[in-house]
Every structure is written in C-alpha cells, then in structure tokens.
Write a protein that binds this DNA or RNA. Structure first.
Length: 275
DNA sequence: AGCTGGTCCTGATGGC
DNA sequence: TGCCATCAGGACCAGC
C-alpha cells in the first residue's frame, strides 16, 4: 500500500531516468484505472521533455512545459524502469508504458485504484485541479507544526485517526503510519481531534514528520535497485510498533496491542501507552 | 467466499 | 431557511 514514503522513494528513483528526457512514445494498453486513462495521452506527451518530477501528497506529478501527467498509485500501483534492451513482455496488469530514449517506464496496478490523468497548462494552475485543490499541507513543509495542527483541529469532532487520514490538514498519512504516529505521540486513536491540547498537537506533528521521514529512509536504502527491481518489492515499511501487531506485547510497555475498526479500517494501538 | 484498503463522491447532519 | 463545513457510508478492484 503506497503511502507518502513509497511515492517519494518512487519519485527519487524515477527522476534520474525521466527529468530532462524526452518522451518518444506512450502505450496505453489497459486504460481502466480509477478513471479511464485518456486515449490521447500519447498525443499530449510524445516529443515533449519532462521538466520536473514532483510529489504532492501521494500524487506523482510529471511536469512538462505545456501540462502535467498526474499519477496516483492507489493501493497497488508501481512504476518500474527497464532498459529498453531488456523490457519484459507486458503482463495482465500493466497499464501504461512511457518510452524514453534509453529506458521504458511502466505502470502496473492490479487493483486499479490508481489514476493517470493529463492536465493541460492552459486549463489553469495545477494546484487548482480538483484532485489537488483540497489537499492539506505537506508534512515536511516547515509551516506544518503543532500550532498549525492545533488550529486546524479545533472544529473537528471526528477521531484524530480519521482526521489524520482525511488528508485535508496534512497530506500523506495513510492507514499504517497513522497508527504508528499516534503510538509515537502517545495519543489514543479515538480521541476527538478538537480535544487535543496544544502540547499533544506539538507531539503529534513531530511524530508524523518523524515516522514518514524514517520510512523514506528505509525505502531510500533500496534505491540502488530501482531499475528492473527483480524482487518486485514495490513496498516497504518501517518496523511497526503497533501496525498488524494485535495481541503481541507493546514494544515499550508489553501490554497487548489492540485492534479496532474506525471508518471500516483497522487501527492498532497500545491501550497503556496511548490515552 | 469474504475481507481488505485510498480516495472520491454523495447524501446526511450540524452550527450559525 | 439557507449555507457552509464536516461527517458517514458506498463504490471501485484483484488477490489472498
């Protein structure tokens, strides 16, 4: 399940092969994703140079002068890089190939929760795109801190776990790292967001940043294998303190970790360390 | 077979 | 009454 760290590691892995390169051809062979991949994607990109590869939340943005390829990995999406001399036969869940001079970049997404859309520059600023406009602040933006989190949660009565996941205050916190960040901050996942005091918001903001940064570090250590990653290990995870550890002893206090369901999603926490 | 999950969408609810 | 922000639930999928 790609969370922000996976997307960021993907961005760093792809960038050397993509930025400053010109797209030769695009093949859309399985257009069914969350929304149909535009058939004329090739016409939009072929012969054009990728200026930058950026990330906003969990969206990966291929910036061209005249537009942007907006990509989301959903639940199971992976971008892989192949030398053109060694490209394997397309498989069932291979959706799109982007062919550059020396490498081919392939999007695979079995569950099809991902997205691949084209935004023309003349439509207006990318940040105003419907998918991006409502996103919260980046966790590594220096403006994201405890006071901001405190201010933004005053009107939110929902559980803090679900407010983190909503992504309209801070982006990039998925189901795994929401549990992990709350454990690190010592906050019970069911606490109403607006009940959190200033001090606890300071701790939670720091925990979110730390957990995500450490996870990027873990994924970053695999970057040297990014091209033709033979192991197909698209995802990675920080050593979980609570995630999927129901019944196991808390690594800090040994109390059994609990599993609850919030918004139809699993949450894990330590009943003694988190209040 | 039934359960899982990230995000968008829709429709309901709440506050003013 | 109306509006806006927030909230809850449903839908989308293949793989186990």
């Amino acid at each position: 399940m790609p969370e922000l760290p996976e997307v960021e590691v993907t961005r760093r892995g792809l960038a050397p092969f993509v930025v400053g390169r010109t797209v030769e051809t695009v093949a859309v062979r399985e257009a069914r994703l969350r929304w149909p991949v535009p058939r004329d994607l090739g016409a939009s990109m072929e012969g054009k140079r990728v200026e930058q590869l950026e990330r906003r939340g969990k969206y990966l943005l291929w910036r061209f002068e005249h537009g942007t390829l907006i990509s989301h990995l959903g639940m199971s999406g992976v971008w892989r890089v192949w030398p053109r001399a060694a490209v394997p036969e397309p498989q069932r869940h291979d959706h799109v190939d982007i062919v550059l001079a020396s490498h081919l970049i392939r999007l695979t997404d079995p569950r099809r929760f991902g997205a691949l859309l084209w935004h023309r520059a003349e439509e207006g600023p990318l940040a105003s795109h419907a998918l991006l406009a409502g996103l919260g602040i980046e966790p590594f933006d220096p403006r994201f801190d405890g006071p901001l989190l405190h201010r933004e949660t005053r009107r939110r009565s929902a559980a803090i776990k679900q407010v983190l996941l909503a992504g309209d205050i801070v982006v990039g916190v998925g189901n795994i790292y929401a549990s992990e960040a709350l454990f690190r901050a010592g906050i019970h996942p069911r606490v109403s967001a607006h009940r959190l005091g200033h001090e606890r918001c300071v701790r939670l903001a720091a925990a979110v940043r730390e957990v995500l940064a450490e996870a990027i570090g873990v994924g970053g250590s695999t970057l040297r294998d990014f091209v033709s990653a033979a192991g197909d290990e698209g995802y990675f995870m920080l050593e979980a303190k609570v995630y999927e550890r129901v019944g196991l002893p808390c690594r800090r206090c040994s109390a059994p970790i609990r599993r609850i369901v919030q918004g139809q999603r699993a949450t894990y926490y330590c009943p003694r360390c988190q209040r």
